[in-house]
Amino acid sequence: MSVLSVLRITLAKDLRMEWRSKDAINSMLFFALLVVVIFSFSFDLTADESRQIAGGLIWVALLFAAVVALNQTWARELRNQVLDAYRVSPAPAESLFLAKTIGNFLFVAILELLMTPLFIVFYNLRSIGPVYQLILASVLGNWALVVNGTFFGAMSIRTRSREVLLPLILFPISIPALLAMVGATTSTLTGEGSAHLSLVFLAVYDVVFTLLGLFLFETVLQAE
């Protein structure tokens, strides 16, 4: 089977499972909502202050929430030894990795769409810079989180304390991407400085880590 057809079938299967159970979306959404509420209780902010820190808050909430979905990606393949079946099947590992990444990307994108209005309401936000930069930052930042998260999820599923390990290895690697996402979002929201450099940085980060993930995924999947 070709790379694309395996990708399409795996992705369709994941989306169908998610559509029927809504496990990942529901838990992510509720978790992100809790983070937003707890943040706004922890800080008492004016409109100016919230514009300064909202970029950081949004991404921290999304990062924490994404881990919930990322942990479930591979866990659902453990039932009935599906992961072992992937391992012995001749289907290209790269398409499995890409399908999982795209699936997670869509879940986090839905989360972003639902969370943005909440953020605008709770933190009285209004963007001073151009809005297309925010959209670009959320797409590129989303991909940066899920591409590494999907890869490391396949690693942490092989360890004793799966759910705990994923953030422990994902967060340090995501720090540079997080800096760029927050930089782009904050400079767009406040209208100070240019988001251009951050967006280019994120794009390069995405390309490099996608290629690295594609290159090493087969090795990780087959690791004994």
Binding site: M155, P172, I173, F209, L212, T219, V220
Partner: peptide, 10 residues
Amino acid sequence: VLAASFAIFG
């Protein structure tokens, strides 16, 4: 193998 892959990412 997992450790070595992670080291390259790191």
